[in-house]
Design a protein around this nucleic acid. Structure first.
Lengths: 226, 226
DNA sequence: TTACACTAGATTGCATACAATGTCACGAGA
DNA sequence: TCTCGTGACATTGTATGCAATCTAGTGTAA
């Protein structure tokens, strides 16, 4: 959306469409299960359907879009079991990624994390909360010299984003309090240089969120609808 | 695999090309770093470049191909650090996947695993060894009712396949002996229903292989070549 | 009413053609 | 010799047009 609408050099249309559509899906402009029509996307981006189709293939591989031959494309939706699976995967991977990035976390960066955690506590709207939560986690990982793991974790965040949004809107203040406490515990552990503790808290944090999500099957697709 | 060479109905060209190219890369028909020309692939599959481009986008997302706009496509190659990263990721994910699939591992399936482990011990050629090793692991996971995790693990196997091939050709018999012993330990743990032990052995097994790979930097791309 | 065939319209899949870009060899000038 | 254009060629990027397929609606018969 808010693209700078750059000159868009020859050879970047498919990437631009993929980026734009990904952003739109994550922002909630499309709902899970919503149909995506190639022609509409093409005219939206002022191109033909060729780069649109390439972008859709890419987003399919990322798990954001579901393609059916000769039939169409839909924003992917998850069952509760699938969402739970993503969270269990995150439980195992994010601590590893944190380990990769920890050595690059300077005092300044940890202070920024602390500031994010505090801003999140005083945040009001759902979108602001989601944005700050994502930024808190991803900025922890930003220094990691990994080539694939960070991108992989971001994909896991992306595919579950709509459910995090729906869940955030109905979560009570008790859970929120623990949620914030865990963030502060991670900051403290990182400040103390206690990486093992930071890993454990991070894993618990994701696990607890998963267990709460699993109490809300109404947020998810029914298994039978496939 | 074993394509039935079906009539290739309208709407499946891109998928067929992606499958074929993936298989060719994994089989070693292309080397890491080798150039992929769209026109050549198109005529090989009897189509135009349009579905070829879609297939390349997909394989790029899978980490098998590297695309540069206006310039071309190459079979992706890994540095040692990147390969090591994939193995560390597998160390964390495969035990989880095994946990998912363990409850579907019947006595019959465990016997098949045992048979695979024995056939691997008496295997001679590199390709046979690679094939059996892959089949041993993936058949452990086959019963998992996961929607994403198994595909993810397969991607991790795929991106590192050429390096496993190169490594296999120069590994000594000592390491091979431990390698087989670990496989047998996993079979035994599964037979005993000791899932915790099976997870631990699996994690160690991957870890040990990683540490051995890291002793052979000559197998990998130089960092500077990017 | 229900099940089924059939048609019209919408949408996707892909081959062709041309435009944009990159590559590489060659030659001129320093 | 080295550096920097310069042009021809190879290759990639995408708009267009048409074929294949699916969907929804209608009508017919059981």
């Amino acid at each position: 959306m808010s693209d700078t609408d750059s000159p868009l050099k020859h050879g970047n249309t498919a990437v631009a469409i993929a980026d734009g559509l990904r952003h739109a899906i994550l922002h909630g402009d499309y709902q899970p299960g919503e149909r995506i029509v190639q022609d509409q996307l093409a005219s939206k981006y002022g191109g033909s359907r060729i780069p649109v189709r390439e972008a859709l293939r890419q987003l399919e591989s990322e798990g954001l879009v579901r393609l059916v031959a000769n039939t169409g494309a839909w924003v992917n939706s998850l069952t509760m079991a699938e969402c739970s699976e993503v969270y269990q995967t995150r439980e195992r991977l994010e601590p590893l990624l944190l380990r990769y990035s920890a050595e690059t976390l300077t005092v300044d960066k940890i202070t920024e994390l602390d500031s994010l955690a505090h801003r999140m506590e005083s945040s009001t709207g759902t979108e602001e909360f989601l944005e700050l939560d994502r930024e808190f986690h991803l900025s922890m990982y930003r220094g990691a010299s990994t080539s694939m793991l960070r991108e992989l974790v971001i994909r896991l965040w992306n595919t579950t984003q709509p459910y995090r949004r729906a869940y955030t809107q109905l979560v009570g203040s008790d859970h929120r309090r623990i949620f914030h406490a865990e963030h502060h515990m991670m900051v403290t552990a990182l400040r103390d240089g206690d990486l093992d503790l930071a890993e454990q808290v991070l894993s618990m944090h994701i696990r607890r969120t998963r267990l709460h999500l699993e109490r809300h099957p109404e947020l998810f697709d029914d298994d039978s609808s496939r």
